[in-house]
Amino acid sequence: MERRGFSWSYFRLQLVFLGPAVLFFSLIVIAPFMLSIYYGLTNWNGVNSEIDWVGLANFKQIVMEDTAFRRAFWFTARYTLVSVVLMNAVGIGLALMLTQKLKTTNLLRTIFFMPNVIGGLFLGFIWHFIFVKGFASAGDALHIGVLQLPWLGTAQTSFWGLVIVSVWQYSGYLMVIYIAALLNVPPEIKEAAKMDGASGPRMLLSIIFPLIMPAFTICFFLAMSWCFKVFDLNLSLTKGGPFRSTESVALNIFNEAFGNNRYGLGTAKALIFFVVVALVSILQVRFTKKREVEA
Rank of each mutant, 00 (worst) to 15 (best):
S199C: 02
S245M: 08
M175N: 01
S171I: 02
I253V: 15
R202G: 15
F228S: 00
V176F: 00
L174A: 00
A257P: 10
G240V: 09
L204V: 11
L182G: 10
M195I: 15
T217R: 15
T217Q: 10
A141F: 14
K239Q: 13
P186V: 05
G139R: 11
P214N: 06
P201I: 06
S171L: 05
A270G: 11
K190Q: 13
G264N: 12
L271V: 12
T238G: 08
S245R: 11
G197M: 12
N261I: 07
L149M: 13
S248D: 06
F209T: 06
D140N: 15
F216G: 00
E188R: 10
F209C: 02
A250C: 02
S166N: 10
V230D: 01
A192F: 14
A250M: 11
H143F: 08
F216E: 08
R262D: 12
I189A: 06
Q156F: 12
G240M: 09
L174E: 07
N255R: 11
C227I: 00
S199Y: 03
E188T: 13
K194H: 15
G266K: 08
Q169G: 01
V163T: 03
A223S: 15
S171E: 03
H143W: 06
F159L: 09
F254I: 05
T157R: 04
A270P: 01
Q156S: 11
F258E: 12
I272D: 00
V146G: 00
I253C: 06
A250D: 09
V167Q: 09
A155G: 00
V146A: 15
M195K: 08
L265N: 05
K229H: 02
F216Y: 15
G161V: 07
T267C: 04
A192E: 13
I189R: 14
A268G: 07
L183Q: 14
W151E: 05
T238A: 05
Y170D: 03
I177M: 06
N261M: 14
T157I: 04
F221E: 02
G259C: 10
V230K: 00
P210D: 03
R202H: 09
W226G: 00
V146Q: 07
K239H: 13
F209P: 03
A181H: 13
G197H: 13
T267P: 02
V249N: 03
F216N: 05
R202K: 12
Y263G: 07
P187A: 08
L162Q: 04
K190G: 11
S248C: 06
M195R: 08
S199E: 10
Y178W: 04
S245E: 08
Q156Y: 09
A198L: 07
W151S: 03
M224V: 04
L174H: 07
K190Y: 10
F209R: 05
L211E: 05
K239Y: 11
M203W: 10
P187T: 14
A250T: 08
P187W: 06
K239T: 12
R262C: 07
G259E: 11
G240P: 11
I164R: 00
L142H: 00
L251H: 08
T217H: 08
G153T: 10
Y178K: 02
C219L: 05
P150V: 09
E247D: 12
N252R: 14
V185N: 09
A270M: 01
F228W: 10
S225F: 01
L205D: 03
I177V: 12
A198R: 07
P201N: 04
Q148R: 13
L205N: 05
F216W: 13
M224Q: 05
N184D: 12
S236E: 04
K269A: 03
V146H: 01
G200Y: 14
N255Y: 12
